[in-house]
């Protein structure tokens, strides 16, 4: 509807934006102060800004390896999710087959499973497979939640591509694989972007499984943060700096998929 933004509407947006930004501002402000300043000399803005906290993170292997571990399993997870979900989503969007609807609902129901339920069995299973404390274990565990989601989102995007395109391409003599990779995938680019967004949104932010399935070698950044708290008192500045850094990958991802976001949601797929 072409209506000029009313004052009420603008103030609603403004208030909500403030509500969102203030905790983030505070986190950032903390991240550039020393712990000393934070506890003794708290103010609305940093009085003597310092990059020491960030320096500590980038030079201490416990911290930066935590980041690398997290990024590693998120990447593995997204890749596996997309690769296995693509053919399945294609099957659901193009064909009817025995038990398709039940299978689809069963897949989706996994998205609704509380991760806490899977804690112990996962621990046992990945230990016996010798995968405990590796990024692969976390990535595979997260697949239980991201793969159904990926199938759901991709199916929505694929269904919006007219089926005639498939038939035309095959009539033109393209092989199925060639058609799928060269013609079909570019058409659902947006869908792949949105899928990555949601895989990331699950895998990057999850803590419970990531914590249970790792001990030291593959410890993700989220866990490094919680363990620092209990070990040496709380270094607020360092914690805040690590927090700031964990927000950045999310920002990068959302920036890349910004134009597809509402389309992804509009399909009713989340």
């Amino acid at each position: 509807m072409k209506q000029s933004q009313s004052v009420v509407a603008n103030s609603v947006i403004f208030v909500y934006s403030c509500y969102l930004i203030l905790p983030l501002y505070w986190l950032f402000s903390m991240s550039i102060q020393s712990s000393q300043d934070i506890t003794t000399n708290a103010g609305w803005y940093p009085k003597s800004p310092t990059m020491a906290n960030f320096q500590e993170i980038f030079t201490n292997p416990v911290w930066y390896e935590g980041f690398l571990n997290s990024l590693t399993y998120v990447l593995i997870n997204s890749t596996i999710s997309i690769i296995v979900a693509l053919p399945a989503a294609y099957a659901f969007s193009r064909y009817r087959f025995l038990g398709d609807k039940h299978l689809f609902f069963w897949l989706l129901s996994n998205r609704m499973a509380p991760p806490a339920v899977f804690l112990l069995p996962f621990f046992n299973m990945y230990s016996s497979l010798g995968l405990f404390d590796t990024p692969l274990a976390v990535a595979l565990a997260h697949c239980l939640f991201t793969v159904p989601l990926a199938v759901w989102i991709l199916e929505g995007f694929m269904s919006s591509v007219p089926r005639q395109i498939d038939e035309l391409a095959l009539l033109d003599g393209h092989s199925f694989v060639h058609f799928f990779c060269r013609i079909f995938l570019p058409l659902i680019r947006a869908g792949i972007g949105v899928t990555v967004f949601f895989c990331f949104m699950f895998s990057w932010v999850e803590l419970l499984l990531a914590r249970t399935l790792t001990a030291s070698a593959a410890k993700p950044i989220a866990v490094v943060m919680t363990r620092t708290i209990s070990a040496s008192g709380i270094d607020w500045g360092l914690l805040a700096a690590a927090g700031v850094l964990t927000i950045l990958p999310g920002l990068v991802v959302v920036f890349f998929v910004r134009n597809y976001l509402t389309r992804g949601f509009a399909l009713g797929r989340v």
Binding site: L27, M201, W204, L207, A222, G243, T246, I247, P249, G250
Partner: peptide
């Protein structure tokens, strides 16, 4: 969309 992409424990920390 930013809060949706922050690790949940960091949300707690924030």
């Amino acid at each position: 969309a930013i809060p949706l992409l922050i690790p949940w424990n960091v949300v707690g920390t924030i």
